[in-house]
Amino acid sequence: MNRENNSNYLVIALSSGKLFKPSIQLFERIGINLRGGREINRKLTFFDQKEEIKFIITRPKDNPTYVECGAADIGIVGEDILLEEKKDVYRLLDLKFGRCKLVVAALEGEGREKYYKNNGHRLRIATKYPRIAGGYFKEKGIYVELIKLYGSVELAPQVGLADMIVDIVSTGRTLNENKLKIIDEIIPLSAQLIVNRISYKTKHKRITRLLQEIKKLLSLESDKIAEW
């Protein structure tokens, strides 16, 4: 990382994966040239020279790390990651796209009351989000044991690794296919715009201008954006 070369450029960190395409769309719609990003290649950086913006592509989970230490000024990141990682960054805008929700799910069967009755033993919860899940169950007064997994969480109840899962759901198809049903909705989620705490001061004008343009677009297309 070399911030020195970046000092004139605004560095924006995009998350690879589900949020990548809508993020590109967002910036294109406000008139930023992202030709480099459209090409499918292995390059992880591309530029809009006229606007002096440099885009970098990060793993979704790493995105707030780049922003926190100042390697990027701005990040587009999933709310799940932001809530789980707790980084020291400004969260300035809910971008409204990439919508999904964090839910508690269990194998199809009886009702919620039954699920939460632990009959004298603690419930085992498999999740990629131990911090959020832990906080949620603590607030509800339910004693759980958290099992941290890195993916395919739906598998855990089927093979007896956990009683339930806490995971993100967008269409619900994966849950259905794995015979899981939603017991509780913890929180709705969407893409978020975050900013480094020093950049927000030192590059304030440019960042504010960009934010205003994004806000304008969001309010103009509020019904369409959710579909991105």
Binding site: S7, C69, G70, N196, I198, K201
Partner: peptide, 9 residues
């Protein structure tokens, strides 16, 4: 104190 070179004080 802030510098252009660090994303933290």
């Amino acid at each position: 104190g802030y510098t252009d070179y660090l994303g933290f004080p």
